[in-house]
Design a protein around this nucleic acid. Sequence first.
DNA 1: TATTGTTATACTCTATAACTATA
DNA 2: TATAGTTATAGAGTATAACAATA
Lengths: 170, 170
Amino acid sequence: MEKALEARDRQAAATECVSAESVVPSFRGEDTGVGGIDEIIGFHIRLAHGATYRHFTETFSELGLTQKMVSVLWLINDHPHVAQADIGRRLQMDRATTMAIINRLEARNLLVRGASMLDRRRQTLTLTADGNAALQEARRCIDEHEHWLKSRFTKREATLLIELLRRIHE
Amino acid sequence: MEKALEARDRQAAATECVSAESVVPSFRGEDTGVGGIDEIIGFHIRLAHGATYRHFTETFSELGLTQKMVSVLWLINDHPHVAQADIGRRLQMDRATTMAIINRLEARNLLVRGASMLDRRRQTLTLTADGNAALQEARRCIDEHEHWLKSRFTKREATLLIELLRRIHE
DNA sequence: TATTGTTATACTCTATAACTATA
DNA sequence: TATAGTTATAGAGTATAACAATA
């Protein structure tokens, strides 16, 4: 047993990534319709999301804004006096999650909460001057970030990708 | 000012989602190459990822396994005696992140760590009987989860989507 | 009854930094 | 010098549960 282990390790050290592949036969597709992990759409969505997230964080490191924060700023700019609940629905976030993000933006004076005159349960969200400035800066970073993404695709492929992804979250 | 606010709120209450749209003109594309937020690939990746994540969590609620945990189990099964660092590289995770997940799997007796005889810095990861059983159960859930995803696409579209996503994370 | 905002709480993922052992 | 594993720490996102005010 110890010998067999050693032989596998020798192989493992020799190859670069997931190393036991050439030694130990794979059991993929044994009793499931699913083949290798590479055929799982969810797997690729997660990796693509991770890679996108990391590049975004890098691009926005000086600005100190997260993806969610930028999305919220953008949405409020497009729809002034929008309520928290609407933001949450549009970004598919829980109310508590939305609160946390709005709180951070408010603490940094990027937006103000105001009372709604019509429905007193609601609050209106509006960007401050600082919020507008931050969004303008953010948009330059988004351009850079989007370019990093889109450089992999033709215009037609990019449109298609968005359409396919939309089917998942809509 | 208060009057204008009220008029907006009336509209906001009347429409369903992000509501100020019909009242307040959008500033999209003002001084950036980017149009509306709906044209941002990263935006759709995030939403699609979120929707996939939520459905996964729901499907796996009884099993108590996360996406990452399942991926790690799967990878170890495909490549027995693989090392932590290889897992991390394949799943694009930091070493510390990998540790946390392996620790949880080990605490639940789904895998064992073993010493590598060749490179004493490395450890070999192997599934226990419980780990194998958990993976078999997980695979049934993955089938269900993948079906939920793939039902939106033709076979050709699914293949294409994976290929496009792969370009992002590879 | 349902919705909105709010607070408290907890878990997962992610990453950085520093340390040890080994190559 | 570089890599593997480890530990401590922290921030971000996600979610649930419960509550008050309002519709």
